[in-house]
Design a protein around this nucleic acid. Structure first.
Length: 832
RNA sequence: GGGCGGGUAGCUCAGAGGUUAGAGCGUCUCGUUUACACCGAGAAGGUCGCAGGUUCGAAUCCUGCCCCGCCCACCA
């Protein structure tokens, strides 16, 4: 018998949970028939069909949030459903070190209170202590996983920085390297000139400041106007500047009057002087001046000094003012380089003149435009020229400006442009700049050398498997998002300037130092040798890609760590490999995660899974909705609208919260937290509890025999048949609902069926047959027996159907139910 | 800027060519106390964002517009 009073989740849920855990029901080795644990060997040989979900690992610090816990609930729903059906089920739990976010949080919340920072710690100290700290956090997170009912094998909970995992992950990198899919290239980074480090966007903040908006005229070249560069010595230049005219005899004979000759001083950071050919026969040149050009294109900038690194002018292709100019060339003043006019739809026609100077090395937006343009115009590639060094000084092919700091260079650039009459006007303007979060120094975007993975070889098979339906994505419309992302992928930058994570297994003979060469390109110096790329360094024996530090002294490890997606992208197979369950459970059956990380995580798992194992990592992907705050906004600490799932469990119980996730489960969309729904769920649970009390109370006299009754033993009335048919239909619908991931509407139907059909209609109408009192209409014992039979079997089936959704209350009721022969003591293993 | 999704009852959302558009919560009326007041019976409440179009028939399909949200630019 069930105890009197309303259902109290706080009393029953912990009891049930303790029993499940103690009985090892969650382990794939648990065998319900023999009620014992198989050995690993027995498990491997076992022929029972398998079902496996790799649980997306929550961050290994802090309190699990709604997103984490909703995911656990959805995953558990499937684990329990298939476990009930008799599959051998494995849920692989894990915890994520969370790269940059983990580093920020541990520095702020653990180290800062102790007065420690990256400035007064060694990398080794930091790593060791952070690892230790995370190990203290993990059990707390695991508790929440257990409380929501997640039936994963917690004995195999795995941390992403577990040494076994690290080894497996790095092996993939080595394989990529050996297959020629890894290279070092350059990418724009947020550089803090004061902290001398690259920063992620989250390490920077935006600040408004007043600045000047300079309108600079760039001379437009005529289509037939030629520009050539010749090298001369310093003395020649000197004479030229003094006299204003010069004759050169080694000029190209195809030049015409009006063509431009740029004189470049040898070995002096490409100091250049521009001149015009005024006498083709006499080969006489005159210093260039504004009057030599009839057309200009004016660009506006807050940072005139960056023009030294301009490699194009960009206009909006829709802009009528410039449409005809696209494809033409301009002569970049002061450094006198010929640069093209290109087009990009992102250029704001209203801002400035609508023409943008493109400095890919020192402006993230410009860098993006360069990449897009190059992708779409492979024959007219635009390059970068890096002109600002990591200490804030001017470098690269910048002639007279070389070595100045940024402010000095700005003044001097403006001064020189004024001399040439190329400044149209100067306005004041407030601008948003990024500053370093720590020291508030303005960020200097610049190029830095990074590790990349060539994406093409990985991308193609990953698109194929989804296109051919080998991996199915639910909801279906997300497939579009996947393809869009995959088709637009560029090479994947996998290195991050952090301490917390997987360090690159690359070793250098001496500390590698990046610097900018005379062409504005990033090159690396290892010891005394300058190398253009990593392949050259390896060839020369200055770098080694290897899991272990090479023999001998002086080897220094690469100080980059991997993008966390590089490791989490391998999560399905590395975890299974670690536990020697790869052959048993890979490919896994379902990847259940939030729709917001389809591109970030799911796509990487598909690519890296296929690459390393040759097989898909999972057969289906289900993307659940995101839980929003009660105000309909995204939960965030700064908005103060965060509600933690453990609080909700404390108030309503785990089953009520699970039901909330499932009933509102609109895949791929947001769902606001709603207390009234949680209340409603609690009422439903109480209703179920009372239904069970009622049924048990009314079958008490036949408790032991009722499970043996079959339909033949009773004379069912129409209402009995109708009721039995309804639960049977629900059982069939459930199979479909899980297959099609429409469990959200199914559980609403099931709940309506339990409440409206069973409780409100059937039970109410059957009462007279049960009470069998004097004066009641129906005293027939056969009628009573049929009602008892129906009550028992309907409740039994409802409990089974409901169990994956609300496991605690159903298993608690199950404990009191009369059992059939062979019934397992837990509903987790009862199929029908 | 690009991509994705959404606008249906007071609130949160279902419905995706076919009678009179649904559910939960809220509101109102009535009832019951031998499973349950965390209950039961019932009611009110909608130009389905706007404007066109296709169709015998449109919340649903098409076109245009308006509004809202999310994702993307070393955040996991």
């Amino acid at each position: 018998m069930l105890p009197k009073g309303p259902y109290d989740p706080h009393k029953y849920e912990p009891e049930i949970l303790k029993w499940w855990l103690k009985s090892k029901f969650y382990k794939p080795e648990y065998d319900p028939k023999s009620n014992r644990l198989l050995s690993l060997e027995e498990l491997k040989k076992d022929k029972t069909p398998t079902y496996c979900i790799i649980i997306p690992p929550p961050n290994a610090y802090g309190r699990p949030h709604m997103g984490n816990v909703s995911a656990f609930a959805y995953e558990d729903l499937f684990l329990r459903f298939y476990r009930q059906l008799g599959y051998r089920v494995y849920g692989q739990p894990g915890k994520d070190h969370a790269g940059i976010q983990g580093e920020i949080v541990v520095l702020r919340e653990h180290f800062r209170p102790q007065g420690k920072s990256k400035q007064n710690m060694t990398r080794e100290e930091f790593y060791k202590e952070t690892y230790r700290y995370f190990q203290t956090q993990i059990p707390l997170i695991r508790e929440v996983e257990k409380r929501i009912g997640l039936s994963a094998d917690f004995d195999r909970d795995t941390f992403t920085l577990d040494p076994d995992i690290v080894k497996l992950v790095l092996e993939t990198f080595i394989k990529l390297w050996e297959d020629g899919l890894v290279y070092k290239g350059v990418r724009i980074v947020n550089w803090c000139p004061s902290c001398k480090t690259a920063l992620a966007d989250v390490d920077t903040e935006k600040k408004e400041r007043k600045g000047r908006f300079y309108y600079i005229k760039y001379p437009l070249l005529n289509t037939d106007q030629k520009v050539i560069t010749i090298k001369v010595n310093q003395q020649t230049i000197q004479e030229f500047i003094e006299k204003g005219e010069i004759t050169l005899y080694n000029l190209d004979s195809t030049l015409d009057n009006g063509d431009i000759v740029v004189l470049e001083v040898e070995s002096n950071h490409k100091q250049r002087v521009a001149s015009v050919l005024i006498d083709r026969q006499g080969k006489a040149l005159r210093l260039i001046n504004t009057n030599d050009f009839s057309n200009f294109i004016t660009v506006a900038t807050t940072r005139p000094e960056t023009m030294l690194g301009d490699t194009a002018v960009v206009v909006n292709p829709k802009d009528k003012r410039y449409k005809h100019s696209i494809g033409r060339k301009v002569l970049l003043p002061l450094v006198w380089r010929e640069i093209p006019i290109i087009a990009d739809g992102r250029v704001d026609m209203e801002l400035g003149t609508g023409a943008l100077k493109l400095t890919p090395a020192h402006a993230p937006e410009d860098y993006e435009i360069m990449l897009t343009w190059n992708k779409e115009n492979p024959k007219e590639q635009v390059d970068y020229i890096n002109v600002i060094d990591k200490d804030g000084s001017i470098v690269g092919p910048t002639g007279q400006f070389f070595g100045l700091n940024v402010e000095e260079a700005r003044e001097k650039v403006v001064e020189e442009l004024k001399k040439l009459n190329l400044i149209e006007k100067i306005e004041t303007k407030s601008q948003i700049i990024r500053v370093c979060e720590r020291c508030k120094t303005p960020i200097e975007p610049l190029m830095s050398s990074q590790w990349f993975i060539k994406i093409d070889a990985l991308r193609k098979p990953a698109i194929e498997v989804v296109r051919k339906g080998k991996i199915k994505i639910y909801p279906k419309n997300m497939t579009k998002k996947y393809f869009h992302w995959m088709e637009n992928l560029r090479d994947w930058p996998i290195s991050r300037s952090l301490w917390w994570g997987y360090r690159f297994p690359v070793w250098y003979k001496g500390k590698p130092e990046e610097f900018v060469d005379e062409n504005g390109k990033i090159v690396t110096k290892i010891g005394d040798t300058v190398v253009r790329d990593i392949h050259e360094a390896v060839k020369k024996g200055l770098a080694v890609v290897s899991l272990k530090k090479p023999e001998g002294d002086g080897w220094i490890q690469d100080d980059n760590v991997f993008d966390t997606w590089f490791s989490s992208g391998q999560w399905p197979f590395v975890t299974l490999m670690k536990w020697d369950l790869f052959d048993k459970f890979y490919p896994t059956d379902l990847m259940e995660t939030g729709y917001d990380i389809l591109e970030w995580w799911v796509s990487r798992m598909i690519m890296l899974g296929l690459y390393r194992t040759g097989k898909i990592p999972f057969k289906e992907v289900y993307l659940h909705g995101l839980i929003l705050a009660e105000d309909g906004q995204k939960m965030s600490k700064s908005k103060g609208n965060v509600v933690y799932p453990d609080e909700v469990i404390n108030e309503y119980g785990a089953d009520a919260l699970r039901l909330f996730y499932f009933t509102g489960a609109k895949a791929g969309a947001g769902m606001p937290l709603e207390r009234s729904k949680l209340e409603g769920n609690r009422r439903f649970l109480n209703k179920l509890w009372n239904i069970a009390k009622f049924v048990l109370m009314n079958i008490e006299d036949v408790y032991n025999e009722i499970p043996t009754w079959s339909e033949k033993d009773v004379q069912l009335k129409d209402e009995d048949k109708k009721m039995l048919k309804e639960v049977k239909t629900m059982a069939q619908k459930r199979i479909e609902a899980f297959k099609n991931y429409t469990f959200g509407s199914f559980i609403i139907d099931l709940r309506t069926s339990v409440w409206n059909t069973f409780a409100d209609w059937y039970i109410e109408s059957v009462k007279p047959r049960l009470y069998n009192k004097e004066g009641s209409q129906d005293k027939d014992p056969e009628s009573r027996k049929a009602a008892q039979y129906t009550l028992y079997n309907v409740l039994r089936t409802y409990l089974i159907l409901l169990h994956p959704f609300i496991p605690f209350i159903t298993d608690r009721i199950w404990q009191e139910m009369p059992k059939r022969k062979g019934d397992h003591k837990s509903l987790m293993f009862v199929k029908d």
